[in-house]
Structures are given as structure tokens and as C-alpha cells.
Amino acid sequence: MLRIENLTKIYPNGTRALHDVSFEVQDGEFLVVIGLSGSGKSTLLRCINRLIEPTSGKIFWDDIDITAASPAELRHIRRHIGMVFQQFNLVKRSSVMTNVLSGRLGYANPWLSLLGIWPAADKEMALKALERVGIADKAQSRADALSGGQQQRVGIARALMQDPKIILADEPVASLDPVLSHSILQYLEQLNKDGLTVICSLHFLDLVHRYATRVIALKDGVKVFEGLPKEIDRAKFKEIYGEEAQEVRAASFEAEA
């Protein structure tokens, strides 16, 4: 169980990205965070594995205080939190295999990993992970030779290498077209069904309704909604996305309803 308490993040330039956000995530949930661009979704996800240091507040994971962890402890915790990014964040000039293996760095022998030597077991595991996302044949290709959807699958395979308990997905489908979006989210859903907790930020309401088990909405760094997907009606939508919300979004919402 992940428990976030009074989380606040103020950037050095004075931007208040998160303000006093608290919520809980039960194991096995598919929690979706929604909100406008700049509402603090990315900051929230990055605070959970402390890629961004929160200004105040606490994050507990099964009673371990992540916010108080020493650097070594933090690395140990991060091993079990996989992360998937909007821009995939692959090293474009490295091979797919190397990119996937780099997900294993938290476990690897630091010296051997520096030389680029990996245990056979890790390689086996990487191939399995690639098979799981359906691109085992691309293992030796350079990452930038792959299409966007394939690159994101490499990103997921890399997260799987960590043997994660939680997966943080920061707008994993925002750079992809709708059909690919569904296929990527189906992989995440499958992982969720296999018992992983998924925390995912999303833009499109139809995807939220289709995949989320629970939803949190942020607006200007403040949590404005927490509940089930079906509880988001037109009024809530306007509250989250503002009065001037795009009609497209409203339309998509109405189509869902």
C-alpha cells in the first residue's frame, strides 16, 4: 500500500506544482491521475520515486518512509518501482537490448555493468520481457530504428526488468495515436491483472473510463477529485478542466456517457 501525506512541491523558481496532496493507493489498483497540462501530474509521479525531491510531506510504502530514505536505500526502493515515460526516454543510439537491460541496473554488479557485461540470466529475462511486449525480434536493432509504439513497448520491457511492485506511467500514450494507445494500455492492464500496482497519468477521458479502477484529479497542484471513474460527470469534468475546457474533451465525455 502506498500512502501519500500532505505532499507539497515548490520549485526553486517559485512555481507551486503540488499543494498538500494526500491519498492512498491499495496494492493491485490501476490508479489514473488526470488533470490539465501543468496541473502537477508529472511532478506527483516523480515525487513517488523521488526523481523530484518533494518540498514537504511524506510518502509511505508499506510503512517504509520513502521521503526519509538514504541514497542507498532510495536506490533499493527504486528497483521495485518501474517507470514508463511519455517520451519513452530510450538511449536512441543504443540497441533495444541494452536499453532493456539498463532496467536491471539496480540489481546488477556495479563493476560488471560498467564494462557492459551482463549475466546470462538477465539477458534471458530481457528477451522474455521483450517477448511479453511482442518485439523480441527487434532486440538487436538500434532504439531509434523503432516506431513510437515499439519504443514505448521497449520502455515497458525496461520497467519489467526491475521486477517491479509498482509501475509509474507518466502520460505513456500521449505521444502515440489512439490505436497504439489502447495496445500500450492493454499491456499495462495485463500487468495490473498479474498483480502489479499501476499509477498512470492520462489525458483522454475515454481511456480513463476504460482502464482505471480509481481516479485522482489534480488542478493547479491541488487534488480536486478522488473516486471511481464513473463518478466523473459533466460538472466534475468542468471543475477539473476549467470552464474553457476543449469541446472535444466534452464531446468525448458525452460519447462515453
Partner: peptide, 27 residues
């Protein structure tokens, strides 16, 4: 340098030497 891959490698729990080796040097 693209900061994305560096962030991704850090998120796997790598130490900073590993971040340089897998996030910076290949770039």
C-alpha cells in the same frame, strides 16, 4: 544531451556511475 534517458536510468535505482555509463555515455 537528452535528459529523458538519464531520468529513466535513475528511476531503475541505478547509482550515479551507472547513470553516467548507461544514460550519458551512450548519448
Amino acid at each position: 544531451i537528452d535528459p529523458g534517458p538519464i531520468e529513466a536510468v535513475r528511476a531503475t535505482g541505478a547509482n550515479w556511475v551507472q547513470v553516467v555509463r548507461y544514460g550519458v555515455i551512450p548519448q
